[in-house]
Amino acid sequence: MIRRAFRHGIWSHQGSHFGLLAGWMLLLVLAARVQAQTPQAVTDDDINRIASQLYCPVCQNVTLDVCPTLACDNWRAAIRSKLEAGWSDQAIQDYFVTQFGARVIGTPPKTGLNWLLYAVAPVGALGLALAGFLVLRKKTGSQVETKDSTEVSLNGSEPWREQLARDIRKDDSI
C-alpha cells in the first residue's frame, strides 16, 4: 500500500492536495495548542477580584484592592504575575495564607477554633428561638380565652388597666 502510494505518488501532483490539507491541519492543531498555552491577558479587574478577598498583612484592616501603600502595590503585582502564570484564584489565596498566615483572609477558614465564630449565628438563633418559645408559652399559656385588645374591660380598677384602656382609646402606638 505504501509502495502504491509512492508509485502513484503521495508527493505526486495527484497526492499533493491530501498532503497540503494534512499540513494545514497540523498547523491548525499546533496553532490551537500554542493559543491554549499563551496566557490570557490579565486585567485589573481579575487582580481586584482576588485582592478584594485578601487583607493587607501589615496595614490596619484594609483589603489589598484598595490599599494605597507601596507594599500592597507589590502584592497586587504578585497576584498579576501568578495569574499570568496560570494560577487559580484559590491557589493564589493559599499562597498568601502560607506566606502571611490565615489573618490575610477576611473569612476565617472553617477549622479548629474558627468554628466558634461560625457557630455563633446558628447557636444564637436556636438559643433565642428557645427563649422566645418559653416566654410565649409562659405568657400566653394562662389565658383561657384570647380576646382582641379592644375587648379588654375598661372597668378595671388597677392603675395599669386604666392606663392601658386610655392608651387603647387614644390609639395604638407602635
Binding site: R103, P108, L113
Partner: peptide, 20 residues
C-alpha cells in the same frame, strides 16, 4: 472579639472581614 480570642488561643489575630 474573635480576633482577640484567636490571638490568645492560637497566637494569630484572625481577621473577621465584611464577607463574614
Amino acid at each position: 472579639l474573635f480576633p482577640l480570642v484567636s490571638e490568645v488561643f492560637t497566637g494569630t489575630k484572625m481577621t473577621v472581614g465584611a464577607s463574614w
